[in-house]
Design a binder for these strands. Sequence first.
DNA 1: CGAACTTTTGACAAGCATCAACACGTGTGG
DNA 2: CCACACGTGTTGATGCTTGTCAAAAGTTCG
Lengths: 248, 248
Amino acid sequence: MSIAPPSCPLSLALRKLESYGRFTDDDRGAFLSLPYLRQPTKAGTQIVLKGDVVRSCRIVIAGFAYRFKMVADGGRQIIAIHMAGDLLDLQHALMRVATHNVQMLTPGELAVIRMEPLEELARQRPAVQRALWLDTLIDGSIFSEWIANVGRRNARTRISHLLCEFATRMRAMGLIAANSYELPMTQEQLADATGLTPVHVNRVLQDLRRSGLIKSDRRTITIDDWQALSETGDFDPSYLRMPMAMAA
Amino acid sequence: MSIAPPSCPLSLALRKLESYGRFTDDDRGAFLSLPYLRQPTKAGTQIVLKGDVVRSCRIVIAGFAYRFKMVADGGRQIIAIHMAGDLLDLQHALMRVATHNVQMLTPGELAVIRMEPLEELARQRPAVQRALWLDTLIDGSIFSEWIANVGRRNARTRISHLLCEFATRMRAMGLIAANSYELPMTQEQLADATGLTPVHVNRVLQDLRRSGLIKSDRRTITIDDWQALSETGDFDPSYLRMPMAMAA
DNA sequence: CGAACTTTTGACAAGCATCAACACGTGTGG
DNA sequence: CCACACGTGTTGATGCTTGTCAAAAGTTCG
């Protein structure tokens, strides 16, 4: 289906982009020929700080990254979590100045791509241009679901929703097969993503385990009852806009 | 500065778009020549329902619109508010199927633009293409700020933040001159935007009045102490990405 | 002028936060 | 190799912010 050798670091991102619309072999080849730098990262590495001037965009090759905002009283709100194949900060690169922070959640590796070649590619290849645009739109769609999640759902629902979203995205990217995955977040980070406190997250997780919805052994989350968890989490994946080809 | 006669319904939107990057006179002319239908609307008119197939995009000519999501227990979360000059659902039109609802907040008027001519225009005019993209990115940037707002700020801060954002956007669009405006929302709608209950919104508003930060007479909000309100609201407008030209 | 909506008020309840301490595992340096 | 520090997870007691319920007062509009 794709001319990308599976070993190419950009092929996961390409697979995602071309799922948004038909790519020609030339489109694929041009994308894979983009010059990039491989940047191995440790857990906690700062990628972008609010206020930074950003002239390049990053694609996650391996590991997990997250974006967050700080509020006045020192609180931290995680606004997005990214996994292998995700474009990290096309937004920032297009708007030049960062409005929030980007950081690695786990050890991993990034591909750093300068914007000039990427924008040139977009100009010459409408399919790529459109795919990049759609990718940022889906990012926005996930944002809007998170507003509803932290704004109008209770703790149990919020956390269940996050676990379902995570599993669904991991499956769509082909990073896991079954409903079991390494959740790369501490309970404190889960709290920062759901607008709760670590203590309350802990209690809710215990409750979800007692109810038989999930098992969790260290960082491994196993969703025992997908039906029940997605109902508890009020989870309707349509906002993720996964094409049929990837939902499988 | 612009060849658009001030009376043209699309000129406000054009002014916003061209603030994101240099437009030629041809770009402006082409944009203003887009075929569109004028659609007068009453308050509460449904524009888009979740699940709708959307093939056109709307620009607010007059009045206010909002977007919202429903959650399982019947709760409603407002995720965005739009005013004259805003593009309403470019996201939906590009992705074909709506993931949330769009509705008029007040009586007003929309311009309905079919996507084919708009996409054709974008293909032929990179400056327009880029401006449209940036517009959706700023939409996403506002989303992310709202996540932090409902996720990590207390009621007083949330409401103050919303009032500041609203005033800032209204001023940027040239819809108001001073720090006084008609807030087109009931307290119930304010509650749905901030993730609170109407009763609590009422109490916080009274408190803000007693503290001398705002005055509110019916729907008119007057910000008496901008400095204090923006501090209370933890408001830093950088996420709105207003170009210098419009911040004035 | 009356109906429907919106704002306001009061009493009370609940969900989640806060604080503090302890348990557990892991890596590190003495 | 052990001791220790550190990050993370867990537990309990308590309290605050915000929600819920219900009703009255004020406002808008046909």
